[in-house]
Write a protein that binds this DNA or RNA. Structure first.
Lengths: 224, 224
DNA sequence: AACGGTCTGTAACTAAGTCACCGAGCGGGC
DNA sequence: GCCCGCTCGGTGACTTAGTTACAGACCGTT
């Protein structure tokens, strides 16, 4: 089965194409494509989602803010992934909330709750899809807890810089941005960056970090 | 529908009694009751579960250990709850692991994976049960991350002491135990306890903490 | 060129974690 | 009882992380 033109968003979710024909049609027809500008708050205090989201384009940053204003990024949802975890949580058990922010302009399929339930009920493939996404997220949350609790900040910063660099050398982020990623404080990050710069591993300029010696960072990141 | 005698474990899970008769019978017949002594490792490096657990009696402690040997308790599974999160994770996406330890002698229903899948597929009630458990756990993980990242250790210790006390005054735990609960270090906990004792909030003896002024602890616990 | 906002640097301080060591308490074996 | 060994807790010196309170640099706008 093929769907053509503007309607065909299903290429982004190969797994869903394995659905039985009937369900596939339901999914295509009952789902809504939503677009949101960069910076939108997708969910969080005051803005609970009423549907299950499949992200087509863009990235969603899920983060938490403390009373004192410090932030930490919990995870990101990329194109081709579902917002399973947070969505299901917010749908299922209202109580406490993380915040989902569109990091870029995003396009997503919003699946009504009833359809989500029907799909879970009727498709082994869809269940697999959802549970795999869940478990990957939870795995990462476990890792995050371990890192926040036990890992040194210089190691975590090195990891994060490498993660943000991905083959580029320039990272566009303020020290505050990096602190928010790690749940640390700006001054702490500034000091660490100065130290890295002193060792010749990188250069800092207003709003950017340029990686010079990636392998040194990699070594530190692996608990060097 | 009623089941009598030794077989009837379903009273612990009222929700499951709402299942359609046919499924209920399947569940009862295909599930196995397992018993494990205190201290057993239920899952973790080297011991993955092959079934979904519903806990009838006892508590399971889910924790993580760092390279350096420091530990942190992620959550506990109590009687009447499912091990949904970790189980599903370990089943779904093998990679990283927390460790599940029987804190007491435990009795649980082990549901084969195939049955779990069948129940998810066929029962709205069961889906609700599983997803609610999931979302509650994830909510708590989010809270844990926030606390580890942003909360002062004295506040966290006060919270933990109150949680462990639950209307009793005596807590049987070594300083190391308390440190493991919070993902902190023994010396840090010892110092905090000394300080609490100095203020007359509690008394410490080898292996126990006796709470004297619960309200002072409560006040601190609420970020006093 | 002046201005206001954002971003970064710095110093002094507190909190948390680490390291190394010691001694107290406790239980078992004799 | 007494000794031995182990667990548990206390302590001081030190490092790392986070906080507070600034000051100054940078940048786009007017």
């Amino acid at each position: 089965m093929q769907i053509d033109g503007a309607q065909d968003w299903t290429h982004a979710f190969p797994l869903l194409r394995q659905l039985p024909n009937e369900l596939f049609v339901q999914l295509r027809d009952a789902s809504l494509i939503v677009e949101l500008p960069e910076g939108s708050r997708i969910f969080g205090p005051g803005q609970a989602p009423d549907s299950f989201l499949l992200l087509l384009d863009g990235t969603i940053r899920v983060q938490q803010t403390s009373e004192s204003g410090r932030e930490i990024v919990l995870y990101r949802v990329q194109a081709g992934e579902s917002c399973a975890l947070t969505t299901a949580c917010l749908l299922g058990y209202e109580d406490y909330q993380a915040e989902g922010i569109a990091e870029t302009r995003i396009r997503a399929v919003a699946m009504p709750r009833a359809l989500f339930d029907r799909l879970i009920a009727s498709s082994r493939e869809f269940r697999q899809f959802v549970f795999t996404a869940f478990s990957r997220r939870v795995t990462n949350l476990f890792r995050l807890i371990e890192e926040v609790a036990f890992q040194r900040i210089d190691v975590r910063l090195a990891q994060k810089l490498l993660e943000l660099a991905v083959s580029r050398q320039h990272i566009a982020a303020t020290h505050q941005d990096l602190a928010n990623e790690l749940g640390s404080a700006r001054e702490v990050i500034s000091r660490q960056l100065s130290e890295f710069a002193r060792r010749g591993w990188l250069r800092v300029a207003r709003g950017t970090v340029e990686i010079i010696d990636g392998s040194a960072l990699t070594q530190l990141a692996r608990h060097g």
